[in-house]
Write a protein that binds this DNA or RNA. Structure first.
Lengths: 102, 102
DNA sequence: TTTTTATTTGCATATTTGTGCAAATGTGTA
DNA sequence: TACACATTTGCACAAATATGCAAATAAAAA
């Protein structure tokens, strides 16, 4: 496995591996519809600027997506990507072989 | 979901989300038999003391287990625990959304 | 015993990271 | 226009983190 592949997965896990960021992901996870940042703020007791920065990190890692709507940014969770990435790692760790892709 | 549950998963992901630590996990993953720390050193170009500390973090998170054997510490990957934790998160992220109302 | 090997720990340090506040930016509304 | 709202950015700072080196510890080998 290439170093850059390891780094990519490490970056994804690191992005998820922070309390407030993971809380944001859970919050988005429970939402039926995409949410703006102010709504997401409710799950963490931090400043809005902090939420903004965390959301930026999550977006950079492809964990969430955003759509501009007026003065709001509407965020949605990239469920498939995150779930597949985690399962791929899980299968590798358990069986030492990558998942078969369709 | 309780804060402490979120924190626990975040801690696990954070432990995995560092390049050298993830490299150690991959190295252990490919080993049919448990390995000592010096052998594991080969996958990262860092000091043995750094590897020691990373292994300590992985052990604290339950990712690896160690057995003392003479002057060596024999490490093995806790495959089931890590894989199940990752899959649990993957399933939650993929499926935990309110049922769509008709 | 002394020496070698494996690992951990103490210390110092450079870097990263999470955070809050205030200001700036962008955009809808009165 | 002026104002309100949503979000980002600049700045400062404290805390966490990763790292290397040297010393300490532990145990096998000589």
């Amino acid at each position: 496995m290439q170093n850059q592949d390891v780094q990519k997965i490490a970056d994804l896990l690191k992005a998820l591996g922070e309390f407030n960021r993971l809380s944001l992901v859970y919050q988005l996870c429970q939402c039926q519809t995409p949410q703006n940042a102010m709504c997401l703020c409710s799950c963490c007791s931090v400043d809005a600027s902090v939420v903004s920065r965390h959301l930026k990190v999550l977006k950079q890692e492809g964990i969430i997506e955003l759509e501009k709507s007026g003065r709001e940014r509407i965020y949605s969770l990239n469920r498939e990507y995150v779930a597949n990435s985690l399962r791929e790692l899980a299968d590798l760790i358990e069986h030492n072989q990558p998942v078969e892709k369709p």
